[in-house]
Design a protein around this nucleic acid. Structure first.
Lengths: 206, 206
DNA sequence: ACGCCCGCATGACAGATGTCATGCCGCCGT
DNA sequence: ACGGCGGCATGACATCTGTCATGCGGGCGT
């Protein structure tokens, strides 16, 4: 019996997935989390209850902590735990980060449901499960060209934030903000901050 | 036995929901669609197969046609069909549009799974199912203040499109684009196009 | 020690964005 | 007929964004 933890913020989806997986004779959902920062506590609780989790299924976009950060924490604390990342968007940067975080599988929600149970069984057999096209895209994409600070500033530009606002928020001068954004624009090969942000998000660089 | 159609572009989620609903003794998923423009044909096929759909569950954000437009078409063609809109974001403008399109229920995926089956049974009993908080927000929000053309131009500004690009795309002069965007910015009470776009999207106005 | 990279900053300037005033046309309701 | 609204446009101008040059300090690897 493979014991699973399921982390997904949308309750309806989480429960539907739990039901689907619960129908498999060799799978059992023993823990659930609706936020990224509930993953570690849930793993702890399952351990304490005598039903240690074998495989954690983590959505990426969750409140409290994103699934990849949660994977890092979980992997550090429970080295034997297998991690399957589940995501809406197969962004290459996410794939890269997920692998670095110790994930054994990376699945997009566009895949057929049968692939989920299959992936779980394969990671239990110490396999890696990644879509070959996505892996190729991630490798072709090269590394995220943005420095840490550039990412901060680009992320802060979302929603129409002015340079003055970004500067105040990140304790920088406006000129520095303009320089960082200009660097982001050039590194991403785009024409303005909005386009740079759109592309960086699509690539999973932020 | 209530016969259902399920329209949701993410295969894994759709199948999980179909499994969940299929476990209810009085519900049966007789049709599925992965794109908005497959909804009508799927309804047609179910009708032809002698298993006419009673309730259509439509996700909003789907390729080919959004769920609300699909609802409009389905409602026009099958007046007796009940429509339940399922969405990730409870945007007031979406709620308003869904109701206008003939939907009988509007559910967010954050809701517990039990609410889905419950909503299906209630709309079969000719009830309306809407979260009271969401309804209040939609009523408090007032109407979408943007004209059709303003919405076109604001939507076209996404992703960093320049005024010249928007103008070329919508067959306008750049000055007209600037005027329309300025109007959007003022009507939304924001400071620039990016913020106007962010807010209009959050409200379900686009 | 030196070179590179990152973070941060100033300053000058070109171009894009946003505001405002104004005006024409067509449609619709009164 | 008239007024209001939406769509479209021109023109002037203020402000914001983006580019470039330059420079300082600190950390790291060779």
């Amino acid at each position: 019996m493979i014991r699973l933890l399921l982390a997904e913020d949308q309750a309806m989806i989480r429960e539907a997935l739990a039901t689907l997986l619960g129908l498999e004779p060799d799978l059992e959902v023993v823990a659930e989390a609706g936020r990224g920062d509930e993953v570690l506590p849930a793993l702890e609780a399952a351990q304490q209850a005598g039903t240690p989790v074998d495989v954690a299924l983590l959505d990426i976009e969750m409140p409290g902590l994103d699934g990849i950060c949660a994977a890092e924490q979980a992997h550090a604390r429970y080295p034997g735990l297998r991690i399957v990342i589940l995501t809406t968007f197969g962004r290459p940067g996410f794939l890269r980060r997920a692998m670095e975080a110790g994930a054994s599988a990376f699945l997009v929600k566009d895949a057929p449901a049968a692939e989920l149970a299959d992936a779980i069984r394969r990671v239990m057999a110490d396999e890696r499960v990644i879509d070959p096209d996505l892996a190729a895209a991630a490798l072709a994409d090269g590394n995220n060209p943005l420095t840490s600070r550039e990412r901060d500033v680009l992320a802060a530009s979302a929603g129409g934030a002015t340079n003055a606002e970004i500067a105040a928020r990140l304790f920088l001068s406006e000129g520095t903000v303009r320089n960082y954004l200009s660097a982001c624009i050039q590194k991403t090969g785009t024409r303005n901050r909005a386009e740079a942000l759109t592309l960086a998000r699509a690539k999973g660089w932020l």
